[in-house]
Design a protein around this nucleic acid. Sequence first.
DNA 1: TTGTAAGCGTTATCAA
DNA 2: TTGATAACGCTTACAA
Lengths: 324, 324
Amino acid sequence: MATISDVAALAGVSTATVSRVLNGKSTVDTELVSRVREAARALDYRPNTVARNLRRRDSSVLSLVISDVENPFFTAVARGVEDTARAAGYSVLLGNSDEDPDKERAYLELAGQAQTAGVVLSPTGPGTALPEGTPPVVAVDRPLPGGRHDAVLVDTRSAARLATQHLLDQGYQRVACLTGPPGVHTAEDRLAGYREALAGRPELVRRSEFKAAGARQASELLFGERDRPDAVLVANSAMAIGLLGTLAQQGLRIGKDIGVVSFDDVPWASLVHPALTVVRQPAHEIGRRAAGLLLDRIGSVRGEAHTVVLAAELVVRGSSTREV
Amino acid sequence: MATISDVAALAGVSTATVSRVLNGKSTVDTELVSRVREAARALDYRPNTVARNLRRRDSSVLSLVISDVENPFFTAVARGVEDTARAAGYSVLLGNSDEDPDKERAYLELAGQAQTAGVVLSPTGPGTALPEGTPPVVAVDRPLPGGRHDAVLVDTRSAARLATQHLLDQGYQRVACLTGPPGVHTAEDRLAGYREALAGRPELVRRSEFKAAGARQASELLFGERDRPDAVLVANSAMAIGLLGTLAQQGLRIGKDIGVVSFDDVPWASLVHPALTVVRQPAHEIGRRAAGLLLDRIGSVRGEAHTVVLAAELVVRGSSTREV
DNA sequence: TTGTAAGCGTTATCAA
DNA sequence: TTGATAACGCTTACAA
């Protein structure tokens, strides 16, 4: 690889001049500008960003650390982050923490040590701590403990309340909630909304990882018991897969024997029969807003932490509408 | 952030010694070792990887550039890459080219300039070229033009042939193929397998992006014509969503009026009714093998390019089994 | 307007 | 075994 000195030598100028030309700095004689450009092209020169970042002490790369790449919600968030980052001239590098605090920590360390300009992070849980040297952070989906950081969240509690209320309105009597692990903000939030809607009715709560396998197991247990629910609010789309698997196995007719509402409007939600009623979260917008906040934070002085809370929408389909 | 000089000063040694201690190099007096470690801990020191990479001229980060983060196939590949990379002490940074050659190029440039140790790449198309300075590359899913690079591919052509043959065996007469854009290797490969199985029967081919929207449109046109197919082989899961949407709209009964086989065994394939017959690609293994090849390539001398071709498996479910 | 040279934080060479 | 010191490739005062 050619270096800046090679270009300087070929163009017959100093490295400083090459640098100035390539960065469009100050005024350089047009004659030299073209000589430099010519030389750079001839050598197929590319600036070494590592050296540049070391010197400038910053970079135009954003880190995005998400808790599950296989979750369509997070990939949609990623797209949102990418869209606004690219528009501002930033690249986005994605790390998958896989809900594992150790992996999360490794990616955060990397984000700091590799001097990315900022981080969009969906924290794995309440234990998430930012290592020394972490650049500005915007939390998405789940807040960061301490509340000292920008965050883009969804009012998933209200959504859960509305969804549960909807099931009750449809005549379901015994609504269960299949939510995520204890301590995970979104899991607790959705559970809280569910409880609000129950308003004193007996609750029926099960928890598992935010994955299909865990939800499958949890729901098999749930439906193996005597006092079965006749409706379920399930906290994400992967878990919905596990739940629907169990329901099919048990021969329960969705929308008749059992009402179902899931979080996240995945592409296949309309393809199952009956179509799945969901809480649609504005995933793409979450990403866009988070990247926007991050870029603001990077560009300017420190200020108050902003928390943006977006609304979710209940999309009613067949899985929750009782056919009497 | 504390630097190595701060640590050296506090420990009363030279930066060279600190570096040696922290990298476990040569033999350092145990007394000094503990003084250095102590100082590093006291200052919460983290090595600056940018400076380190600049000096070492390498890093322990792999780039993964995939053509669509929202495609479960690629996220599964990503998991595979990540698993073996992490086991070898590497981190993985993911870039989403979104089937866009410009974005792909930007990420490849970044991979080179940021001195990641190697790249796992699913090329957007036949036009993909590696910029000067790109580290070792392993192609996945699609080969890189020129054949000078390692690749991990799937024998998707045979799979397409088998899938088509299966549909014919089930008594479907007029099998269509809904495949990806011209020039994209996997699209062509699946089409070729389809054609092999037809063995002279009239073909019926439609193309779209590897996305739901495109496939929806293409299939609406397809089923709006007079000479409709009675079975479809569709080239990926996102396209399957578009196709199934059209079929539902048209009131066609899958597995009866119309047979369907899709590529990629997505989690929801068993939840639709009837369950979707699919060609299951070993996505996770593709990722693992690719990372393995890349690490070999990084660790040792250049040698022949290896191409690994994995088999795909036809998973027969209700969508293709004719209920007579 | 241009060049010289210092410095970003490491690692590696070479003496001591 | 340890410490100066010169790189790594770039940007940016500061001088000319």
